[in-house]
Simulated scan of single mutants.
Amino acid sequence: MGVSVSRSSLRRAFVLLAVPALLVAGCGGEPVDGGSAVGGADPRVELVRPGTLSTCVRLPFEPFEFRDPDSGEIVGFDIDLGGFIAEELGVEQEIVETSFARITSGADLDDGVCDIAISGVTITEERARDVDFGEPYFNSSQALLAGVHEEITGMADLHGRRLGVKEGTTGEAYAVDHNERNGSLVELVRFPDQTELTSAVRSGLVDAVLSDNGPLYGFARVYRDTSVKVQIDTGEQYGFAVRRGNTALLDVANEVLAAMRADGRHVELHRTWLGVTPNQL
């Protein structure tokens, strides 16, 4: 992570857990009864549960969304961004925990599980066929993390070695493409979540991992026996996603992001959760 997890999130949120055909309130949040919208709610936007902006995330992806071990609250860069959008709408934010596949496929948005997904989702042409993306809010690159004493300067140094990747991510796609172009010289080991992925380096299950740069730099700042060896400029950008055709919500979210860039809140999010400004990544 970018800073101590004891730092409070800039915006609080209720938390829900998405399970098949059912939403269960958690972390002290009250169940949503589908009643009328709270006073002051933006009439331009129809929400799946009136009075709340339901935000889908996949945990953990520190420092963008993760559970604070001290408070138990879900906090992070993406959580705060969603909080600012909810504030503009005049409603509360509730966090819906779900799978990354249901976010990127648009399934949870189409099924009315949530209004918006903000979960470190890289904008790609394939994903844009299933969801509508807003303006990019974070510039990302792929990076290689390994033990601090490892001498790795690129993918070629991992030929004949084991590389960890997270399932369903652009990092996995990049590694698969590398193997297709180079005769499958890197042994890929796939992990279901970010915690298992990064922990595999320290436990020796893999020689290195390939993932988004933000979380890897945060991990290396905490675990000094690891380090980011190289960034791979893939030109990736994170975007929040809504159900296709939900232009009313997308317009408001884009307006909020533009205002955050103008008044400094966007830079402050980077400082708070990554310890750097956007141009320092």
Rank of each mutant, 00 (worst) to 15 (best):
V189M: 11
L17W: 06
P50F: 11
A13K: 05
S54R: 14
A25C: 05
S211F: 14
G39C: 02
V186S: 10
L269H: 00
V131E: 07
F66K: 05
A128F: 01
E87Y: 01
V165E: 11
R7Q: 15
A253F: 04
R221K: 15
G2E: 11
V15D: 11
E196W: 09
T55G: 00
G28C: 03
C56S: 15
A259Y: 00
V252P: 02
S140C: 09
R265A: 08
N246C: 08
Y238A: 09
R181H: 10
L22C: 11
E172P: 06
I232D: 01
D251E: 15
R127N: 07
D207Q: 04
T122R: 09
T170R: 14
D207P: 12
M260H: 06
L144A: 06
T195S: 14
G204N: 09
R243K: 15
S8T: 14
Q142T: 05
V3N: 14
I85G: 04
R12E: 14
G275R: 03
T55S: 12
G40W: 11
F133N: 06
W273L: 05
R161F: 11
G164D: 08
G134K: 10
L269P: 00
R67T: 12
W273N: 07
G164P: 13
G90T: 04
D80A: 14
D108S: 06
I232K: 00
L47V: 01
P63K: 08
P69A: 02
V165Y: 02
P63T: 10
D225F: 04
S211C: 02
W273Y: 15
L205A: 13
G235T: 07
L185P: 02
R49I: 03
F66I: 04
G183L: 08
F138P: 00
I79Q: 04
F64K: 03
R265K: 09
L109H: 00
R12S: 14
E46L: 14
F100E: 13
C27E: 13
A175I: 09
A41M: 10
D225M: 04
V57K: 01
D130R: 15
Q231D: 15
L163M: 12
S36I: 03
P278A: 02
R58Q: 12
D108C: 13
G26L: 13
A220K: 05
E92C: 07
D177V: 03
V5K: 06
E73C: 05
R190L: 12
F240R: 03
L47A: 08
F84S: 00
D212C: 01
Y137N: 05
Q194F: 13
A37R: 07
R271S: 07
P31D: 08
T195A: 15
G147E: 11
P136D: 11
R181Y: 03
A259K: 11
P60K: 01
S140T: 11
D130Q: 13
P136N: 10
G183P: 06
L22P: 10
I85F: 06
V113W: 09
W273E: 04
D251V: 04
